[in-house]
Design a protein around this nucleic acid. Structure first.
Length: 190
DNA sequence: TCCGAGATTCACT
DNA sequence: GTGAATCTCGGAG
């Protein structure tokens, strides 16, 4: 089942971050279909400092975060990395959920090629926000795309249930570090 | 195994 | 001009 607007809209970012665990990110590329189970997310809201849209600050970069929930916010950072977010809550609020980690499900070979990855253990193939984007072939071109009513990239529910959900602090930020807004999950297959 | 630094582009001040 | 929601590699221990 492909998730529709109702899944993303009208719940706070923390709830959405938790609900996204176990869902499947699907990206159909010209090379083939890539799928990955979402295993780690972080919530961002305009009420706290580390959010790009903090205080409702709307700029060229962050304007996507004020779109309807379900839009993709892809931004570039550290000179060489992309990170991928899903807009949350409601239109005009400036909230989003950062996808931090996925478990490869389909198109693994292509992901390995995308990442120019030579190691054997797949655990490190996409266990970080920038790695995930590289593996899934997500870049700036997908910024501002709507995950609803779109056959190229979307989120699907394939009945994976998180066995356990852990709640802890966010990573790699310098402000509002003490908030427990990161979620990660152990997935079990039904 | 762990830690520190370099990479390198873009948006914002 | 500055620093960023990161990753990787090389050297030290």
């Amino acid at each position: 089942m492909i998730l529709n607007r109702d899944f993303f809209e009208g719940k706070d970012s923390l709830t959405l971050a938790k609900d996204l665990l176990g869902k499947v990110l699907v990206h159909k590329t010209s090379e083939g279909t890539l799928k990955g189970i979402i295993t780690e997310t972080e919530a961002y809201s305009q009420d706290e400092e580390s959010c790009h849209a903090y205080g409702g600050k709307k700029t060229n970069r962050t304007k996507v975060m004020f779109e309807k929930p379900g839009h993709l916010y892809v931004y570039f950072t550290y000179g060489m990395h992309y990170c991928c977010n899903i807009v949350s809550e409601e239109e005009g609020k400036g909230c989003a959920v950062l996808l931090r980690s996925i478990e490869p499900l389909e198109g693994v070979n292509q992901m390995i090629q995308n990442r120019d990855y030579s190691k054997q253990n797949l655990k490190e193939l996409s266990n970080g926000p920038a790695k995930l984007c590289q593996a899934m072939n997500i870049d700036k071109q997908l910024n501002n795309i709507d995950l609803i009513n779109n056959s190229q990239i979307y989120i699907e529910d394939l009945d994976f249930q998180p066995e356990e959900i852990y709640n802890t602090t966010r990573i790699g930020i310098s402000k509002a570090k003490d908030l427990n807004w990161r979620y990660y999950a152990k997935i079990k297959q039904n």
